[in-house]
Computed example of a mutant assay.
Amino acid sequence: MLDTHARKYINPSIDKTAHWLVKHGHTPNQVTVIALLIGLMTSVLYILGYPLLSVIFLWASGFLDAVDGSMARHTKTSPFGTVMDITFDRLVEIGMIVAIAYVYPELLWPLLLLSVSIIFSMTIFLVVGAVSEQAGIKSFYYQAGLAERTEGFVLFSVMLLFPGILFWTTLLFFAVETFTGVQRFIEARRLLHKGAGTE
Rank of each mutant, 00 (worst) to 15 (best):
M1H: 13
L2I: 11
D3S: 15
T4Y: 11
H5R: 15
A6M: 13
R7V: 08
R7A: 15
K8Y: 10
Y9F: 15
N11E: 15
S13Q: 13
D15V: 07
K16A: 15
K16Q: 14
T17G: 05
A18I: 00
H19F: 09
L21P: 01
V22R: 02
H24K: 11
G25K: 03
T27E: 05
V33P: 01
L37G: 11
M41H: 10
T42R: 04
T42Y: 00
Y46S: 10
I47E: 08
L52P: 06
V55D: 04
I56K: 00
W59Q: 09
A60W: 00
L64Q: 06
A66K: 13
G69H: 04
A72K: 03
R73Q: 11
T75A: 04
I86N: 13
I86R: 10
F88D: 05
D89C: 01
G95F: 00
M96Q: 13
V98C: 07
I100H: 08
E106D: 15
L107M: 10
L107T: 07
L107K: 06
W109L: 15
L112R: 12
L114N: 12
F120Y: 11
S121D: 15
S121F: 00
V127T: 12
A130G: 07
A130T: 11
E133L: 10
A135D: 12
A135G: 08
A135E: 14
S139R: 14
F140V: 01
A144V: 09
A144D: 14
G145N: 05
R149F: 00
G152F: 01
M159K: 09
L161S: 07
P163M: 04
G164H: 08
L166Y: 03
W168Y: 12
L172A: 14
A175G: 14
V176Q: 10
E177Y: 10
E177S: 15
E177T: 13
F179P: 03
G181K: 03
G181V: 01
V182E: 06
R184N: 09
I186A: 13
E187L: 11
A188D: 07
G195Y: 00
G195A: 13
G197Q: 04
T198W: 10
E199T: 12
E199M: 09
